[in-house]
Design a protein around this nucleic acid. Structure first.
Lengths: 329, 329
DNA sequence: CTGAAAGCGCTTACAG
DNA sequence: CTGAAAGCGCTTACAG
């Protein structure tokens, strides 16, 4: 592989000049510029970005950590993050933490060594102190870790309100919310707040069941419903599930146990990711997170943090959600 | 951020020695080793892998190109690739080609500049010649580009045979296969070969419809069925779809048009990725590709190619598939 | 407008 | 068992 020296020799100039041509310095004369470009083409020269990274102290790489890139919601988010990165000259280094604290830690250390320019955190098991020890730009998805660390998320509170109000508007008198794990400092917990407030304001009795795992499978959800949720199903006529997979599992459970949806019981989910959009039966009524916008914001904001290098400014943003009417309410 | 020099100074040794400690050279005395380790800890030193890459001429990064990391099948494959990479000290740089030739090309050039150690290609629009110009280890998913470039894929031919024989065993007398785009040199086309052969051997009349897009959406599939497939549906009693999304779209179309599945028409798909596994109604009868094995092989084989540096040996592998009985046949 | 030289932070023959 | 020095392939003050 030819190096900048080979190009310099071939063109009869110094490596400095070659470097300047590649970096579009204005001071280069037309004729040398042409000579250099010709040599670059002749040798099929590709500058080594590792060497460039070392001298410029920037890698143009963004570390991206999510629990599991194969979960529908994350896989879409990652797609839009990657596309935005690509459009801005950055690349992403993908990490699956698998909701394992050790892995999450080792990934962060790895990203430090890889000298990524910034980190998008979608996985959040390690504690706040450790986060603060990361001395490079970082942005999180849906977690408010510290007021120094910006986050991007959907408007979970309003989502909770919308979902709950929708159930009430459809005539529900007794509501149930199945939340995600509340221990995590996830902004998703605000869905619960929105739910509670709306129930209270409308004088609707409610019940809350928390499921303990952050990113479980369909089978887990179904089992969870059998064990922890089924006993309440005769007492309520509307359920707000913290995500669509849970909503689908609940729907299937109801069908299997002769509860008619939406007549006996109305179900609303959260996310509206690919799975839900493809699913035809039922069309789950849900709160849509704007996945593309979220991915683009995560990436464009981490890039701003990297390039503007202002740790003082915080680029947290909350984007609005939308009710999608399906057939389950 | 402390550098190796800071550690050397702190420990009172040379940078050479620090480097040797970090790389576990045996010749280091216990006492210096301890001194160095202590200094590393005291300074919270993390070696800069960019500098290391530059001097060792290896980045420990694998470039991974797929059309779209949010498609269920790819997202799972990527997960297992990443996990295997992580287990072996490698990282992955993720690229979405979006089935765009220009993007694919520019990604490959980018990966050259990033000096990735190897490339896993799951996107295949550029031509063979260009592939051969890539002077680093490369492995493809499901494409046989050239006998110098190894590939990993499921046993598509046998999958086609299994699917077709299953339909015949279930009593089908007239079969239809909806294939993927045949222009691409995809090994997935062997599903068609298996289909044809099995029909001929069993004296079953058959029909083939090709859909032109590589990675379309549900809505595209549904529209395609309305336009190009529906006219044949009264003439056949069994359909082998080249993927599960197509099978689901066909199922939904049938339900919407008063064709009973599996009584009037039997449907079998291909993939058995996450979507299919979660979907409860119907349970699509399908040919399961072992996604985890495929991802692990893609990654472990590219690592072997990188580390053994033997461009002569080729690590192509085909893994076996399995029939999953659902409710659509 | 151009070049010589130092530097980015590591590794690695070479020497002792 | 340890170190001085060169080198990886770029960029960038500094000088002219």
């Amino acid at each position: 592989m030819p190096s900048i020296k080979d190009v310099a020799k071939h063109a009869g100039v110094s490596t400095t000049t070659v470097s300047r041509v590649m970096n579009d310095f204005p001071s280069i004369s037309k004729s040398t510029r042409k000579k250099v470009l010709d040599s670059i083409r002749a040798l099929d020269y590709h500058p080594d970005s590792i060497a460039r990274s070392l001298s410029k102290k920037q890698s143009l790489i963004i570390g991206v950590i999510f629990p599991d890139c194969s979960y529908v919601f994350f896989s879409e988010l990652i797609k839009y993050i990657e596309m935005t990165a690509q459009d801005n000259g950055y690349k992403i280094l993908l990490c699956n933490s698998l909701d394992d604290r050790e892995k999450e830690l080792s990934y962060i250390n790895m990203l430090k060594e890889k000298r990524v320019d910034g980190i998008i955190m979608g996985s959040h098991l390690i504690n706040t102190e450790f986060y603060k020890s990361i001395d490079k730009p970082i942005i999180t998805f849906d977690r408010c870790i510290d007021n120094k660390i910006p986050y991007i998320g959907s408007d979970n509170f309003t989502g909770g309100v919308l979902a709950t109000q929708h159930l009430i508007d459809k005539g529900c008198k007794n509501l149930l919310h199945i939340s995600g794990p509340l221990k995590l400092t996830s902004l998703a917990n605000k869905r619960l707040d929105g739910f509670k407030l709306t129930c209270l304001e409308n004088n609707i009795p409610y019940k809350i069941v928390e499921h303990p795992h952050a990113n479980p499978s369909f089978d887990y959800f179904y089992g969870f419903i059998e064990k922890e949720v089924s006993k309440f199903l005769n007492l309520v006529d509307g359920v707000f599930c913290s995500n669509d997979m849970m909503a689908y599992a609940l729907y299937v459970y109801c069908v299997n146990h002769n509860l008619t949806v939406p007549n006996d019981i109305k179900i609303i989910g959260y996310d509206y990711s690919q799975f839900t959009r493809i699913l035809q039966n039922p069309k789950i009524t849900t709160i849509a997170q704007p996945i593309q916008v979220l991915g683009e914001l995560l990436c464009s904001n981490i890039i701003r943090l990297i390039e503007e290098d202002v740790s003082s400014k915080v680029y947290s943003q909350i984007v609005s959600v939308e009710l999608i009417q399906g057939t389950t309410t």
